[in-house]
Design a protein around this nucleic acid. Structure first.
Lengths: 250, 250
DNA sequence: ATGGATGCTATTGTATGCTATCTGTGTCGG
DNA sequence: CCGACACAGATAGCATACAATAGCATCCAT
């Protein structure tokens, strides 16, 4: 029996998983959307209609719904009742919350790893830092991606699966936040700070490693987070235009 | 207009939300299952068939699936492909991971709150501690629930929504873990430690508060978690496995 | 009698249809 | 000319129907 598929082979998803495992397509949808959001193919605030996405990806609305629900739980999309999903547009307060939690989590990472880093792990991190340095010149999304991956590599070395999940989650949200509020072309992580961190971890000084990580992330915020691009309220944005046209603004 | 429901009023869910808001029933299913798991009406390892749950709760499998997916993401249920859902049965390693992350998160709570606690908040916490003391005599699930709620109240006072979510999640998982590996009737949190913590928070000494919290949670683990070398008899060891297989335990 | 194959059953995975609700547009009254 | 009501188009919420898979029991062959 050749599977009598319901003729579902036109678009993107069906092709990427040959084995056709059970929950694989739902995962693919999730990953596709996640990636699209993180590399800003879908801008924050953009609507995400179930039908359109399902159409484009060759799956039914059910799977799209599943993916959207998951992304909503991770804070990458907002899900308003009867209004559908849209790419999350975090407020500055939410941004602060996320960065605070991230600092707390990554401090735990540093403490956990301090003095426990194997030489192989340290080498791997060193190699990564070198990649970052190489990417520094040609400022692009490449540099940003690598800087983020350093932290992911770090947390993965703890072997704590839950910690990995949480750090990945907050990292994703940080990317989104920086896409909204960040300076255009800031390399967010100073490579030198990454290298210092590795040293501290190898030396086994947990306190110093934690403080370094803390300071590092703190400086990421102050370096990359800029004043809000005053898009709080559309009325504020339009006020000058209204004055220009002689319309009442209050 | 009485909503012309599709005849869905027999069982548990339909009655609890009169307004019948859009996503309310899905949430109700989620909460019902969550509660059932946490108070061990559903034992770890127990199977969770979608249609049975849907039947019992008066909703379709769709909503049950949604709830199960969410619980799976929170680590309260395990979701195996084509095999369905079951109440999570964390390993000891996972348990350690969860407790580690919890310590990191709650330390952040303590640091955030240190010196920022209003008198009203301190009073509220004091009142809660008094409830805990009252419940100490009659050892029961009551004492355990109250001890957990103390930490929830605490994190809610930070005003950090993400931190609240994470702490609630790890707290839930800790409850589950203690249900499996915990001593039968240990009051997990020493009430005196809660009171000390409030003092430290009021005094504004962030370091001391964080260390107290750390030590507090550490002692919860050592007080409640059974040692790996089980000097209990073999029947106790096998009991959870029997439950997992649906066999009688006595 | 034992080992393996085969059909059956229970349960999950996915799609789709129906209904309720929301948003935008058009029309009517002030 | 501006506001309110009403209708219509669109979209999410939910249920159900259909398809596929894993586990189990039975049966046959060695």
């Amino acid at each position: 029996m050749p599977k009598t598929n319901t003729s579902r082979d036109e678009a993107g998803i069906a092709a990427d998983e040959r084995g056709a495992k059970p929950g694989a397509r739902a995962l693919s949808v999730y990953r596709a959307l996640r990636k699209a959001i993180l590399e800003q193919a879908l801008n924050p605030g953009m609507k995400l209609p179930e039908d359109a996405i399902g159409d484009r990806l060759g799956v039914s609305r059910t799977l799209v719904r599943e993916a959207l629900a998951r992304l909503a739980l991770e804070g990458l999309v907002e899900l308003k009742p009867n209004r559908g999903a849209s790419v999350a547009y975090p407020t500055l307060e939410e941004a602060r919350d996320v960065f605070d939690v991230r600092r707390g989590l990554e401090r735990l990472v540093a403490e956990t790893l301090a003095g426990r880093l194997t030489q192989a792990q340290a080498d791997s991190l060193e190699a990564h830092v070198r990649l970052e340095e190489a990417a520094l010149g040609k400022d692009g999304p490449e540099s940003i991606r690598l800087a983020g991956e350093f932290h992911i590599k770090l947390v993965e070395m703890t072997g704590n699966a839950l910690l990995v999940r949480y750090v990945q989650e907050v990292s994703s949200r940080c990317s989104l936040i920086l896409a909204i509020y960040g300076r255009p072309h800031s390399s967010e992580c100073a490579v030198s700070e990454h290298r210092e961190l590795i040293d501290a971890l190898l030396s086994g000084d947990a306190r110093r490693a934690a403080d370094l990580m803390d300071h590092h992330l703190q400086s990421v915020v102050s370096r990359a987070l800029i004043a809000p691009r005053a898009d709080k309220d559309i009325r504020e944005l339009l006020a000058p235009y209204a004055i220009g046209e002689g319309l009442t603004t209050t």
